[in-house]
Design a protein around this nucleic acid. Structure first.
Length: 801
RNA sequence: GCGGGUGUGGCGGAAUUGGCAGACGCGCCGGCCUUAGGAGCCGGUGUCUCCGACGUGCAGGUUCAAGUCCUGUCACCCGCACCA
């Protein structure tokens, strides 16, 4: 019989659909497994061959877990708010919701054609009012708990999208999406206080099973550092606070630097004699985009304040104060003490402005370069600190400062608050009104969802307001607090909002009274295994941990961390080894692969192509190997014979393979699991036949990888029920080791012959057998044996002189 | 600059974590079958000066034994980027 994959795949997809085969059960007494993959943004281009790599891997885990008796939740949905759809709407004047619906339908068709075992009854869509009602609800809780606030601030502004971007959305000074220049602009923005959660987000990482590179990246992003906040008096008669991690070097501070945005500059306006110059520098700095700032990073610039000087608290010496854009207003206090001898940036600046460099940690040559090593140096030129190590000096100076109320220990984070508003149409409306009398007033929860109104035009306005701002009728409302006239907030939420909690909604997707019932959350949470892209590590993954941790703190969810385990897949590259992109013309369309090779072959190939965690180039010729393998498994039905147990000589092979495949799937080593199945096929087919017990096991093991074909064969062979209802095979550990093994015999580490011996042979016997070999005898006669080794089951090594 | 990672045949990649390097697949070569084949089947395939030797980016080291551990070095990829 021919392997008609198209027909077989369609047939089983329909059966699974009709029977709701993969719907998670509501029986909360069963052991559960919640597998999750990042829900896609339904773009107009359709599915990319990269998407299925992640989906297939977790699908394999999910299918295996089901066969092992778990109640499995493996859901799918749509992260459908966002810019590309809106930009498309602007161009074509088709409403984003219509575009979204069309794209979702296409994505769904494609996903179904690949045979994923998603529970489609739990599909969610972030643009659905019954969904974003709860996104808005969470926002109101954040607002209620003081974690959402509005602030006039310098924001990243994309000149083309006419929209504010989060720091995370600015890549190399340009907009992540459109590549246009990003400048700074002062605007009032909704902010989320993720910084309040820096500590919890950091500590939570110790509790979860995330791959190391994810943990490291999040830790670096949050960027905790322990230091000291020190008070410097100034000749203006006030106190200027700075932050440093090197308080030990205080005696080496020869000048101070303020960020150009530092508020003291305005305060000292009348004292600064060269204020015009300072003003000019400030304006210059504000104009620069981040890209220009970093581009010019090598050459330090700055202006010395003429009229105000700082006073070093340890020795009372007056030192100059500068402004320079190498000091950031957003970190620490926006002011630093500069120790050119022991900080590279200060050293560069001091050289340029010809400032004194005073060595306070001996060990380097500070006239040549800054000596920044904290581990080896000894304190010098530092009065009471002299002779101490850097660590001892840090403690001593902190104590000294504390006693005099001149400074305190301080922990700082690189993490910034999350800019949460977007001047865009296609996003969740922020459920807040502005009342002249009452200020910002949250909408009552009973009025949720606040529906996104229909607008005629999606164009952002020239002044940077959301398109919603033009809808006078919608904007004009009454204050829920005082009943007076008020205006609705016209900014919308960023795309990261809806995706920050979608995994909770899957637990109970049709609930009208809560984002999900406490019972459902308790049973399904946390997600047991979440796979997704590295690019989301400091965005979605961090944001959703933040929201979840907040929801935990207010008693909405039962666990502190949303995801027990996080893994990440490598990218699928084009055939030329470059990233797939339309402009490079190396994009592979999954529809064509399914048409030409079948979904099962595509799944097997994507899992077989290499290490799941690493990038791998697509190869059209390699996919044939996977197809060929499936054809061979298919053809085994022609040589099927009776037999309810494995044949004796294949017993070990089968047990070993069951063990290998079972374990490899758990470790995401799909490539070696498939290789093991291929080897098993080779062994079995060499015997010229396969019995029913053997075929049955093979089909079960292969089922998670190639679900359609294995179901069909299961039916053809008349095995009990449907394959998806069967039980995953088990193995007998005692039958996973061969009775005899081939060992290598080495003399002085060089292989001289090979021997087949009993697996449990003793060292003495092995050595005796080895020495009896002609090749070995020849090598060792007349020489002194220095050492004899036997590594069980592997080799013998005889060392002679 | 900092952080993370990778380097193994013509190609994708294996290697029980210090124990026979190259599993499995692609490609290629030879044969069979065929009117034909970009189909199928069988066999072969790391390199070389091929009775032997050499081989995991490069140079050292530790060890009976190194792809794996240590020191140094080069190349490439990803992330962050003046965070005091």
């Amino acid at each position: 019989m021919k392997y008609d994959y198209a027909k077989i795949e369609k047939k089983w997809q329909n059966i699974w659909d009709e029977k709701q085969t993969f719907a998670a059960k509501e029986d909360y007494s069963l052991p559960k497994f919640y597998g999750l993959v990042e829900f896609p943004y339904p773009s107009g281009q359709g599915l990319h061959v990269g998407h299925p790599r992640s989906y297939t891997a977790i699908d394999i885990v999910a299918r295996k877990k089901r066969l092992q008796g778990y109640n499995v939740l493996y859901p799918m949905g749509w992260d459908a708010f966002g810019l590309p759809t809106e930009n498309y709407a602007i161009k074509t004047h088709i409403h984003p919701s219509i575009v979204t619906e069309k794209n979702v339908a296409n994505f769904k068709r494609q996903l179904k054609s690949l045979g994923f075992s998603f529970d489609w009854s739990r599909e969610v869509n972030t643009t659905d009012p019954s969904y974003y009602k709860w996104t808005q609800w969470i926002f109101l809780q954040l607002l209620k708990h003081g974690l959402a606030y509005k602030k006039k601030m310098s924001v990243n502004w994309c000149t083309s999208c006419k929209c504010v971007l989060a720091n995370e959305e600015v890549v190399n000074g340009v907009c992540e999406r459109c590549g246009s220049e990003v400048i700074h602009k002062d605007k009032e923005q909704w902010m989320l206080k993720i910084t309040d959660y820096a500590e919890k987000l950091l500590d939570g990482l110790d509790e979860v099973d995330f791959i190391d590179r994810v943990k490291t990246q999040q830790r670096n992003w949050i960027g905790r550092s322990y230091g000291t906040q020190v008070k410097f008096s100034t000749t203006a008669g006030d106190v200027l606070e700075i932050y440093t991690t090197r308080a030990d070097t205080l005696f080496g501070a020869t000048y101070m630097v303020l960020s150009p945005e530092h508020p003291y500059l305005d305060k000292w306006k009348n004292l600064i004699k060269n204020y015009d110059e300072v003003r000019a520098y400030q304006q210059e700095a504000a104009k620069k985009s981040d890209f220009e700032r970093t581009e010019l990073a090598k050459e330090k610039t700055g202006v010395r304040l003429d009229g105000v000087r700082g006073i070093n608290p340890v020795n009372g010496k007056e030192i100059p104060i500068f402004i320079s854009d190498y000091v950031l207003i957003s970190y620490g206090t926006g002011a630093i003490m500069a120790v050119p001898a022991h900080d590279t940036r200060d050293w560069d600046f001091a050289k340029k402005f010809d400032l004194p460099i005073i060595e306070v940690v001996a060990g380097g040559n500070v006239q040549k370069e800054a000596f920044t090593d904290c581990a080896t140096g000894t304190m010098v030129n530092s009065d009471f600190l002299n002779g101490l190590s850097v660590d001892e000096a840090k403690k001593a100076i902190q104590q000294w400062l504390k006693e005099r109320n001149l400074g305190e220990r301080k922990t700082n984070y690189k993490l910034r608050d999350w800019v949460f508003s977007r001047q865009r149409y296609w996003g969740e409306p922020i459920p807040v009104v502005h009342c002249e009398k009452c200020g910002y007033v949250p909408l009552p929860e009973s009025e949720l969802p606040l529906m996104l109104p229909n607008v005629e035009s999606y164009e952002p306005t020239e002044n940077g307001e959301s398109p919603l701002a033009n809808m006078t009728e919608w904007v004009q409302t009454t204050c829920p607090h005082c009943g007076g006239p008020a205006k609705r907030e016209t900014d919308t939420m960023p795309q990261w909002a809806g995706s920050s909690w979608y995994f909770l909604r899957y637990c109970d997707p049709h609930n009208d009274h809560a984002l999900a019932s406490p019972e459902a959350l308790k049973y399904w949470g946390p997600v047991d295994w979440y796979n997704g892209g590295m690019e989301h590590t400091t965005l979605h993954l961090l944001y959703s941990r933040f929201w979840h941790r907040f929801l935990y703190d207010i008693g909405v969810v039962p666990t502190a961390e949303p995801y027990a385990k996080r893994t990440s897949h490598g990218m699928i590259l084009g055939e030329n080894g470059e990233k797939m992109s339309k402009s490079r013309g190396n994009v592979v369309n999954p529809d064509e692969i399914v048409r030409d090779y079948g979904a099962d072959a595509m799944r097997v190939y994507e899992m077989f192509m290499g290490d799941f965690e690493k990038a791998a180039p697509w190869s059209q010729s390699s996919i044939k190997g996977s197809k060929r393998f499936l054809e061979k498994i298919w053809s085994l039905q022609d040589i099927l014979v009776e037999g309810e147990t494995y044949r004796t000589d294949l017993e070990i092979d089968f047990n070993k393979t069951v063990k290998k495949v079972t374990e490899d799937i758990e470790e995401l080593k799909m490539n070696t699991a498939i290789a093991a199945l291929m080897s098993l096929y080779n062994t079995v087919s060499a015997t010229g036949k396969i019995n029913r017990a053997e075929y049955r096991t093979m089909l079960l093991l292969l089922n998670p990888f190639a679900p359609h074909m294995t179901e069909e064969l299961w039916e053809i062979c008349g095995f009990d029920g449907m394959l998806n209802q069967a039980k995953w095979p088990t193995f007998d550990a005692s039958k996973c080791v061969d009775a005899t093994v081939e060992i290598a015999v080495q003399v002085n580490g060089k292989i001289r012959c090979r021997l087949r011996v009993a697996a449990d042979i003793s060292a003495e016997e092995a050595l005796a057998l080895a020495k009896a070999e002609e090749n070995i005898a020849k090598e060792i006669t007349g020489k002194t044996i220095v050492k004899e080794l036997y590594v069980p089951g592997r080799l013998v090594n005889i060392v002679v002189k």
